[in-house]
């Protein structure tokens, strides 16, 4: 195997670099003349810059619903590598502030980068030590600017983020996708969940008469039901997920949990299984 990561995906040229010494870092200024002539090797580091054109390790849906006094969010613990269930204990709900939780679907490395960005911002605020900090809407705006600027550079962060929180007595639930599209709604579901779970969430909100008529316990039940549907039908999901609750009291992110499922009926369906 070729152990130079920078060579991966690039065609090898025997004429130019017969001993495979190039590219190695710190070649600025002494790139062999012939190398610069290879198409795409115009960059000073000797490599073409690459942009994310597809996600690699991915997380599936994130769900969020408002209830009386707060917001409840759910995401499973799986990070897939294509169809491979690669990492099975990844946390995709992250507390970013006292009253704010970030949930991420899409590329996991991009998510971890964004998490780092926001955490850095929060540390900056904390160090100012002047009684001010970023509230949920402020973090949302910041996240939106980050996502929009990256898409404008044609180098997007391949995620859909969900931000849940409570600010000045009001619950906040918003999403931002890789093109920087922001929207807020009483219920949000990303990825496959936008097809499978969102209709369930919206129906619950509608039949119960809005977020103010949903209790914390009911919100948990609704999300568990939605996660079960996703586990049944979304092949990139896993029956191990976490719930995040954000209220005026603060944030609680649960331990991973699962729901009871029933597969026996599958045996009787023709063309399914054996």
């Amino acid at each position: 195997m070729d152990h130079f990561p920078t060579n991966w995906g690039n065609p090898r040229s025997e004429d130019v670099d017969s001993y495979n010494t190039y590219p190695i870092s710190s070649h600025i200024g002494k790139v062999p003349h012939s190398v610069t002539q290879i198409a795409g090797y115009g960059h000073t580091t000797g490599h073409p810059t690459s942009h994310t054109l597809q996600p690699v390790v991915t997380g599936t849906s994130v769900l969020g619903i408002k209830f009386k006094g707060g917001v409840m969010m759910a995401a499973d613990n799986l990070a897939s590598y294509g169809s491979l269930a690669r990492f099975r204990d990844v946390e995709r709900l992250h507390q970013v502030a006292d009253f704010t939780v970030l949930g991420a679907s899409g590329d996991i490395s991009d998510y971890q980068y964004v998490k780092h960005l926001i955490d850095s911002q929060m540390i900056k605020e904390y160090n100012a030590d002047d009684g001010h900090t970023l509230a949920t809407p402020n973090i949302y705006e910041y996240l939106w600017r980050v996502m929009y600027n990256r898409r404008s550079k044609m180098n997007p962060l391949w995620n859909t983020f969900v931000l849940g929180g409570v600010h000045q007595g009001k619950s906040f639930l918003g999403a931002i996708d890789l093109k920087g599209t922001p929207y807020q709604a009483p219920s949000i579901a990303t990825g496959f969940g936008s097809h499978l779970a969102q209709p369930i969430l919206r129906k619950e909100l509608e039949t119960r008469g809005g977020e103010d008529n949903i209790t914390e316990e009911q919100a948990v039940e609704i999300l568990k039901k939605s996660m079960k549907v996703l586990w049944y039908r979304d092949a990139r999901s896993m029956n191990k997920f976490q719930l995040a609750k954000i209220t005026a009291e603060g944030v609680t992110i649960s331990e991973p949990m699962s729901v009871e499922t029933e597969w026996a009926f599958a045996e009787k369906i023709r063309g399914y299984g054996a």
Binding site: A175, D177, T181, Y183, Q184, A185, S194, H195, Q198
Partner: peptide, 13 residues
């Protein structure tokens, strides 16, 4: 309404 393809993102934007 805010849509993306056949999905409605949010009913009030």
């Amino acid at each position: 309404r805010q849509s993306e393809g056949y999905s409605i993102n949010s009913r009030y934007v």
